[in-house]
Simulated scan of single mutants.
Amino acid sequence: MTDAPVPSPAPGSAADVVRTWDARAEQYLRLFRDELEGKPYDLDVLRAFADRVGAGARVYDAGCGPCGHVTALLASHGLDVLGIDLSPRCVDLARREQPGCRFAVMDQGAIGTGPLDGLVAYYSLHDQPKRVLPVTLAAWAAAVRPGGQLLTVAKEGTGDGVVDDPMGGELRVYWAEFTAYELRTAARDAGFRVDDCTVREAYEDEIPARRVYLAATRS
């Protein structure tokens, strides 16, 4: 008698996110450990977020990944920041890379009721189907206090499905892209006031897709 094969998790599910990120965490770390050094626009946007919430603000870095570099940058500006990620391997590596910062395994779509002063989601939306976006934004709105700040960054486009891993290799991953309109609409429907929504072109060494930056205040 042989054991029945273990079914693969549904594409884009939480279990699928864990599967794909546990498998490629080390590769991502090698590629993107120092990525912020070559992204002056992103540094300005993250610093502006830190200025808006103010020193001592309680903030989550949702989808911190294995680098933990956004968490570390926000902490360097005096924020009380926790980096969260679904992937235990990503959290383990982030703790190693940024020993002075705090990290926890947590689902960005089920983070409780806060209250947080702000939340940053730096490329954390593309691992799950676009239909999940309203649920995720509603969870963020429940966690962020009125007047608190949201910053989310996503790749622009209409893609929504399983693709070959953009980082290379044989892995198949879920990949969702968003338009500025989709992000604005979801944020407003969830209870945020959109303060700014800008788009920039990709840098030469980035995946060739424009980036959408949305800043909002919890109503």
Results as ranks from 00 to 15, higher is better:
residue 21 W to G: 05
residue 197 C to K: 04
residue 95 R to Y: 03
residue 155 K to S: 11
residue 116 L to H: 02
residue 20 T to P: 01
residue 42 D to W: 03
residue 20 T to M: 06
residue 63 G to L: 10
residue 102 R to S: 14
residue 94 A to K: 05
residue 88 P to H: 00
residue 58 R to A: 13
residue 169 G to W: 04
residue 87 S to V: 01
residue 91 V to C: 05
residue 34 D to Y: 12
residue 99 P to Q: 01
residue 6 V to L: 08
residue 6 V to C: 03
residue 23 A to K: 01
residue 80 D to T: 02
residue 213 Y to G: 07
residue 153 V to C: 08
residue 17 V to Y: 10
residue 43 L to T: 07
residue 122 Y to K: 14
residue 172 R to Y: 00
residue 43 L to W: 02
residue 139 A to P: 08
residue 140 W to R: 09
residue 36 L to S: 05
residue 59 V to Q: 11
residue 139 A to H: 07
residue 200 R to P: 06
residue 72 A to R: 15
residue 41 Y to W: 06
residue 25 A to H: 00
residue 80 D to Y: 01
residue 175 W to R: 12
residue 184 R to P: 05
residue 2 T to R: 11
residue 41 Y to T: 05
residue 196 D to T: 08
residue 52 R to P: 04
residue 92 D to G: 03
residue 37 E to H: 11
residue 173 V to L: 03
residue 169 G to Y: 03
residue 154 A to W: 03
residue 99 P to Y: 01
residue 62 A to Y: 05
residue 208 P to R: 10
residue 66 P to F: 02
residue 211 R to C: 04
residue 191 G to L: 05
residue 189 D to N: 11
residue 169 G to I: 02
residue 209 A to Y: 09
residue 165 D to I: 01
residue 135 V to Q: 13
residue 30 R to T: 10
residue 155 K to N: 15
residue 38 G to T: 09
residue 117 D to T: 05
residue 55 A to R: 14
residue 18 V to W: 04
residue 198 T to E: 14
residue 152 T to N: 07
residue 97 E to K: 02
residue 55 A to V: 15
residue 101 C to K: 04
residue 55 A to S: 15
residue 213 Y to S: 09
residue 139 A to K: 09
residue 101 C to Q: 14
residue 101 C to A: 15
residue 187 A to M: 08
residue 134 P to M: 08
residue 91 V to Q: 09
residue 175 W to L: 04
residue 158 T to M: 07
residue 212 V to G: 04
residue 98 Q to L: 02
residue 165 D to Q: 01
residue 18 V to D: 02
residue 99 P to I: 01
residue 180 A to Q: 13
residue 58 R to T: 12
residue 21 W to R: 12
residue 144 V to L: 13
residue 149 Q to R: 14
residue 86 L to T: 03
residue 57 A to T: 04
residue 118 G to M: 09
residue 145 R to W: 02
residue 7 P to C: 01
residue 134 P to R: 06
residue 48 A to H: 07
residue 112 G to W: 07
residue 35 E to L: 08
residue 135 V to I: 09
residue 185 T to G: 04
residue 167 M to W: 14
residue 44 D to Q: 12
residue 34 D to V: 08
residue 10 A to Y: 02
residue 1 M to F: 11
residue 152 T to L: 15
residue 28 Y to Q: 13
residue 120 V to N: 06
residue 69 H to R: 13
residue 44 D to R: 13
residue 142 A to G: 15
residue 200 R to F: 07
residue 73 L to A: 09
residue 40 P to V: 00
residue 174 Y to E: 04
residue 162 V to E: 00
residue 11 P to N: 00
residue 144 V to Q: 14
residue 85 D to W: 02
residue 39 K to S: 10
residue 51 D to Q: 10
residue 212 V to K: 02
residue 133 L to G: 04
residue 130 K to C: 14
residue 25 A to S: 04
residue 180 A to N: 05
residue 215 A to D: 09
residue 140 W to M: 13
residue 69 H to Q: 10
residue 207 I to R: 09
residue 217 T to I: 13
residue 100 G to T: 02
